[in-house]
Design a protein around this nucleic acid. Structure first.
Lengths: 185, 185
DNA sequence: GCAAATTAATGATTTATTCAAG
DNA sequence: CTTGAATAAATCATTAATTTGC
């Protein structure tokens, strides 16, 4: 898809050129593409091993650290939730319905105003209960990268230490993850 | 203070005995004592180097990982905040005052009920503005442990790589941190 | 066209909340 | 019930888009 030597060289050069001192990570198109592909595939909270793996692969297209990958997934996930929430709010307000949030003392809630654009925060709290989350990946054991992954050895022992091609990383990682974390929590 | 060889041996044994499979970290008294000392000294969000340092020192008193130290500070901080909040709420409700939160449409807020025990969350939002935080350590550059601390080399170059005694760790680390992060943010 | 000024995106951190072991 | 562990939400801060006045 996006993997010829030319782009690789150019990107490395661009990276080195535009990030001399070392500010924040500026992902290349290839990196973003792959991350989004993984995300679309269902990856949400990669564990340390997976992050290392992905990082080493994305590293071919520019400077990158493990934490960049971790943060990318966190932010991407959060901001999609955010967007979803906003959309839900809009569709709700388009129905122009009165939202009467049931408070502990219901006698005091007298026909509260239609949800204005301002107080998204409170609304989010309400939504959390009435919105069916599509998030099928509940909490996964993230585990830190500080120490070697001793604890994680309890689960998936079989993880290719370091694949070489993109197809490999994508297929491997997604296949590793897609079983939907069989041992729940 | 708490540092004779006997205890050390016993604790190592206890650690190994009570955590065969590898459940969650169970801090020893010495470890907690030191952590609390550091906390009292003002440490709140140690960075990767400091965490590594502390971990290696606490490791003398039992099995421990960097993430344990990290989480300990996070939880300790958060739970002190929590306690503070609860206390503030209590003292407020003891005055039995009416809290009228100014909403975008003030005409609708008619003498809202006194703060009941349930909605701590909203109260916390209010407090955040009217409570002078004693937290003089704003945001410090935590940085991950995944990669080597390349970026951090911009600041404090002088950090003893690995001290040996407890007094050393305490004095060193606190002295490293106490300058109140001269370059603000 | 083209910099300076604003605004929107998004990388990075911290804080709040929740889960669950003991 | 306490607290270690983990995730979600909120926040900060920097870079890219975009606009604006010239």
């Amino acid at each position: 898809m996006i993997s010829n030597k030319c782009n690789e060289i150019i990107n490395v050069w661009v990276q080195l050129e535009t990030h001399p001192g070392g500010t924040r990570w500026n992902p290349t198109q290839e990196q973003i593409g792959i991350l989004e592909m993984l995300y679309k595939g269902g990856m949400r909270t990669p564990n340390a091993q997976q992050i290392e793996h992905i990082t080493s692969q994305l590293g071919k297209y520019g400077k990158i650290e493990g934490k960049n990958v971790f943060y990318w997934f966190q932010n991407h996930k959060a901001r999609e939730r955010q967007k979803q929430k906003r959309n839900n709010l809009i569709s709700l307000s388009c129905q122009s319905s009165f939202t009467t949030t049931s408070v502990s003392n219901p006698s005091l809630t007298t026909k509260t105003r239609t949800s204005s654009s301002l107080d998204i925060r409170r609304a989010s709290m309400v939504e959390k209960e009435e919105l069916v989350e599509e998030n099928e990946y509940k909490r996964t054991c993230r585990s830190w990268g500080f120490e070697n992954l001793e604890i994680e050895n309890r689960r998936n022992k079989n993880s290719s230490t370091m694949a070489t091609t993109f197809n490999k990383i994508i297929d491997n990682v997604t296949l590793e993850l897609f079983p939907l974390h069989p041992e729940g929590r």
